[in-house]
Design a protein around this nucleic acid. Structure first.
Length: 423
RNA sequence: GGAGAGGUUGCCGAGCUCGGUUUAAGGCGCCGGUCUCGAAAACCGGUGUGGGUUUAUUCUCACCGUGGGUUCAAAUCCCACCCUCUCCGCCA
C-alpha cells in the first residue's frame, strides 16, 4: 500500500513508476474515485455530527424534564437518511480499498528501467567448472545416485512434486542446517519457526493477496492458504505491532517448505527440480528503520551470497529491471547460481527492499524518538537460499567423470565426514 | 469437540448489573519542567490511534476482539462469529 498523500499530491511520481513497471493500473480513474470517496465521506460525517448533537440535546431536555419529542423526530428522520448514505458509502469504500490493493510499490530510482532484458549484471563470483568429460544434468545424476525419486512425488500428489531419498534427503536437510547455522552464527539472524498455513489477512499484508491468489493453494473451508514463502508468516509476526525503536533492526531467519501452484507455467523450465509445487527454502527477513533500508539490502544480499561462496559455487548477481519487479518490491536483486549440466544460471534468491509498502499494509510501526511519532518500518527479505536449484547446482558442479559427486567440504560434517556420493 | 471465564485507547487496568456530564477513570511508560555538579527519587504540567478538513490554528468523524441488530443515544442491551485462558474429552 502506498501513502495516499503521495497519490494526491504527487500523482506524477506514481504514474511514472507504473509506466516503468508496465502496470496498467488506472491512476486517473482512481484519483477520480478518491474525490468521490472524500466528498461522500464528508457528507456522511456532517450528518453524523448533527446526529450526535441531537442525541446530546435530547439528553439535556430529558434531564430538564422538558419534552424532547421534536428532537427525537428530527433524529429519527436523520437516522433513515444516514442509513442510506452509510450503505452507499460502505460499498464505495469497499471498491476504493480493493482498487488501492492493486496498486504496486513505487520503483526505486536506482532500478534499471525496462523489461527483463534490461536486468543488469551487478557482480559475478567464481569460475564455471572445466570438465574433461560430458557433464550430466541433475536429473540423471540424482536418479543414478538414488537421491531423488521423481516418480514417487507424482504418484503421491501430482506433477512437479518430488521425493528426496537417501543421500538426497540428507543433502536437503544438511543444506537447511548449514544455511540456518551460517545466518544465525555468522550473520546475526534470529531463527523463527512458523505455521505453513496462514489466513487471508496475513497474505494481504505482505502483498500476495489479492494479486497472486491463483498462484496459491487455498484451504477454502478455513480461509487458510499454504505459504508460498516464509516471508509471509515471518513478516506478519510484527503485523499490528508497535515496535520499540531499540528493538530495530530485527533480523529473522526461517526455514519452511514453500507451496506454489505455478499456474500457467507448465512446460516452462519445469524439468527435474527447476519448478516444483513444493520446495524448501531458508528465508531472511529484516525489519529496519527507514533511513537504513538500502544499506540493509546490500548486507542481506551479501549474507545470501555467502552461502554460495562457502559452497564454492559460481554465481552472479542481477539487479532486476523495473518491469521484472514483484508487486511489493521497490528494488530487488536476484542471485543466480551456475549449473553446468543444464548449462544455465539458476535463480536461487531474490533479495528485496519493500520500503514501507508491506509495513503500511500490515501496520508495522515503531515510535521514532526524534520525531516522537509512529513511523512505518521498512521490511526486506531474501532467500538464503532456495533448496532445489541449489541442490541441482551442487550435483552438477561437483560431479565426477565416474558419475559420483563430491560433497562440498562445508557439508561433510553432516555426512559423517564422507567425501562423495557414489553409486 | 464440550463447559466456564475473558478480549477496553503503547502496557496494566476500572467502567458493563441500572444505555446518556466517559470528548473511556486510575496506574505504568513516554515528553517537558522544578530540584541536582550530573543522575535517581520526589513534585508540577503534558501525552490514545486512524481518517476527513484547513496555509495554519481549528473543526469534525470513526474506533472498547470482528460483523450485524435494538435505540433519539451503545464500551454498556441483543444476535452471530473469531481469538485467549482454565477444566473435561480426544490425540501425535
Amino acid at each position: 500500500m502506498l501513502d495516499i498523500k503521495i497519490l494526491r499530491n504527487n500523482p506524477e511520481i506514481v504514474k511514472e513508476s507504473l509506466i516503468k513497471r508496465n502496470d496498467k493500473f488506472d491512476l486517473d480513474a482512481f484519483l477520480a474515485l478518491d474525490n468521490i470517496w472524500r466528498n461522500k465521506l464528508s457528507e456522511l460525517e456532517t450528518l453524523s455530527a448533527r446526529q450526535n448533537i441531537l442525541a446530546q440535546e435530547t439528553q439535556l431536555l430529558i434531564k430538564d424534564k422538558k419534552d424532547p419529542k421534536s428532537k427525537i423526530e428530527e433524529s429519527k428522520q436523520l437516522k433513515s437518511q444516514l442509513a442510506e448514505l452509510e450503505k452507499d458509502f460502505a460499498q464505495l469504500d469497499i471498491d476504493y480499498k480493493a482498487k488501492l490493493d492493486w496498486l504496486p510499490n513505487i520503483v526505486h530510482s536506482s532500478v534499471p528501467v525496462g523489461d527483463e532484458s534490461k536486468n543488469e549484471l551487478v557482480s559475478q563470483y567464481g569460475e564455471k567448472p572445466d570438465f574433461k568429460f560430458k557433464a550430466k544434468d541433475h536429473v540423471t545424476l540424482a536418479e543414478e545416485l538414488n537421491m531423488v525419486d521423481f516418480k514417487a512425488g507424482t504418484k503421491l500428489t501430482g506433477t512437479n512434486f518430488v521425493t528426496y531419498t537417501g543421500d538426497g534427503a540428507t543433502l536437503e536437510r544438511a543444506l537447511i542446517n548449514f544455511m540456518l547455522d551460517l545466518h544465525i552464527k555468522e550473520h546475526g539472524y534470529r531463527e523463527v519457526s512458523v505455521p505453513f498455513l496462514v489466513n487471508s489477512k496475513t497474505m494481504r499484508a505482505t502483498g500476495q493477496l489479492p494479486k497472486l491468489k491463483d498462484d496459491m493453494y487455498n484451504m477454502s473451508d478455513d480461509d487458510f492458504y499454504l505459504i508460498p514463502t516464509a516471508e509471509v508468516p515471518v513478516t506478519n509476526l510484527k503485523r499490528d505491532v508497535l515496535l520499540d525503536e531499540s528493538e530495530l533492526p530485527i533480523y529473522n531467519v526461517c526455514a519452511t517448505p514453500c507451496f506454489r501452484r505455478e499456474a500457467g507455467s507448465y512446460g516452462k523450465d519445469t524439468k527435474g527440480l527447476m519448478r516444483l509445487h513444493q520446495f524448501d527454502k531458508v528465508e531472511l527477513v529484516k525489519f529496519v528503520k527507514p533511513g537504513t533500508s538500502y544499506d540493509e539490502l546490500e548486507q542481506l544480499l551479501e549474507n545470501a551470497c555467502k552461502v554460495l561462496e562457502l559452497l564454492k559455487l559460481p554465481y552472479r548477481v542481477v539487479a532486476l529491471a523495473s518491469g521484472d519487479l514483484s508487486f511489493a518490491a521497490a528494488k530487488c536483486y536476484d542471485i543466480e547460481v551456475y549449473s553446468p549440466g543444464i548449462d544455465k544460471w539458476l535463480e536461487v534468491s531474490s533479495c528485496s527492499n519493500f520500503e514501507d509498502f508491506q509495513a503500511r499494509r500490515g501496520n508495522i510501526k515503531y515510535k521514532d524518538s526524534k520525531t516522537g511519532k509512529r513511523e512505518f518500518v521498512h521490511t526486506l527479505n531474501g532467500s538464503g537460499l532456495a533448496l532445489p536449484r541449489l541442490f541441482t547446482a551442487i550435483l552438477e558442479n561437483y560431479q565426477q567423470e565416474d558419475g559420483g559427486v563430491v560433497i562440498p567440504e562445508v557439508l561433510r560434517g553432516y555426512f559423517c565426514g564422507h567425501e562423495r556420493f557414489s553409486r
